[in-house]
Write a protein that binds this DNA or RNA. Structure first.
Lengths: 234, 234
DNA sequence: ACCTGAACACCGTTCAAGT
DNA sequence: ACCTGAACACCGTTCAAGT
């Protein structure tokens, strides 16, 4: 019996095994319910055994981010800086969409791991290779923000306001209180055949904003922008 | 003695008192350590007493966001849609900077409260009043994202990589591994007198990105953009 | 030296027992 | 009917006792 238990735990615990098990667990049921204790149980190990491979839960989360960032396809650039950046960001997005919890965790990390620094360094390098000044690149990276990881905080979630099971009386009341929100949720455009409550195409929204930013960056670069002048003042 | 205790609790508990106490507590020591139990203690009340005014901790957080959003100065618009939006966003930012925890909490909310819906409705209305189509406004709101609340996730935090107490040997090693990150952290521009590690001006970065977006929105609007065509394709 | 069970100091929330 | 103490089912992590 004790022997069989030994057999089950054949593969010894390692940082990698801990991290990938954590990623799988988060993929399956989210990060919030992910606990050191549950992770240990999943690995058939006593909770304290984890602390041999990660100092604490914070470091576990750091490691999980590294796993995800490591999955991003860094091959296949483009011809110019713009398509290179675009490709990398969309490659990151593909990974992030597979690990929805990663968005929140990446945002909560304060210490940048070597893996994360390397990713950012590469992205900065793309702008520099495109001839961007250190100055402009700096601001451009800030403007890009979390979009460089392929995600945005969807703070405008009209799918929640969308039709579904909402009773007509309530819809009517909402349309009176929040006419603009409802107009968008309903996509009721006068000069167009209205498609009611079709939800959002997140990928389209992401690329819309990404391209808007990249176009803006390009314009500033071409104008030889420096931080002496503000973008609003041309 | 029992009488005095009564006297101390003079003002009866109310939803408002619970929420504002929670906001104060979060301002002082952050949201993470904020617990129902500590909040109750702060109010001189048994933990369960809170549940008379908020259904659970989620609803407490919802309410806290409402308090913050309610603080945003909604007066004083501008002449055109652009300056109106700009003013509102920067007004929101002023409030958010006073409640640093609110950023994270706003992002974590999935249910939009009436207060939040009203804020978004007003913002959508600003674009609509500026002549924006429902279609364009929809995408523009997505592109604005959390920036409509006056904050961005500062995922590119070079203050962490900045000088401070980092030993020169380590700085040198980092400059070899992450040359681009360090170049930006050091602000070492060749064709300019280099100012070493001055940290970031968050307000400048915020306005830089905000204006970049607003300029982009304006351009699309003037071009009569519709979602049939993608922004990258002009 | 390594490993780990029990313990500590917390949580949010339920529930039954008190008034 | 209202209020609340105790309890439940969890946490992350420390630590001392076992091997």
């Amino acid at each position: 019996m004790a022997e069989q238990t030994e057999t089950v735990r054949r593969t010894p615990l390692s940082r990698e095994r801990v991290l990938s098990a954590a990623v799988v667990l988060a993929d399956v049921s989210g990060v919030e319910p992910l606990s050191m204790r549950k992770l240990a149980q999943e690995l058939g190990v006593v909770p304290m055994a984890l602390y041999k491979h990660v100092a604490n839960k914070e470091e576990l989360l750091d490691g999980m981010v590294d796993v995800i960032v490591g999955e991003v396809d860094t091959g296949a650039g483009g011809e110019d800086w713009k398509s290179t950046v675009r490709h990398r960001v969309l490659a990151a997005r593909r990974i992030l969409l597979r690990h929805p919890w990663a968005r929140r965790v990446i945002e909560s990390r304060t210490n940048k791991s070597p893996v994360v620094l390397e990713y950012m360094d590469a992205m900065i390098g793309m702008f520099r290779a495109g001839g961007f000044s250190v100055d402009l690149t700096h601001h451009v990276m800030h403007a890009l923000g979390s979009r460089m990881w392929g995600f945005t905080q969807e703070v405008f979630d009209d799918s929640a306001t969308a039709p579904a099971e909402i009773p007509p009386a309530m819809l009517h009341a909402m349309a009176e209180k929040y006419p603009h929100v409802m107009a968008i949720a309903m996509r009721a455009d006068h000069d167009d055949e209205s498609v009611v409550g079709q939800g959002c195409d997140d990928q389209f929204e992401f690329e819309f904003a990404l391209d808007l930013l990249l176009d803006g960056f390009e314009r500033l670069h071409e104008q030889g922008w420096t931080s002496r002048r503000r973008p609003a003042q041309r």
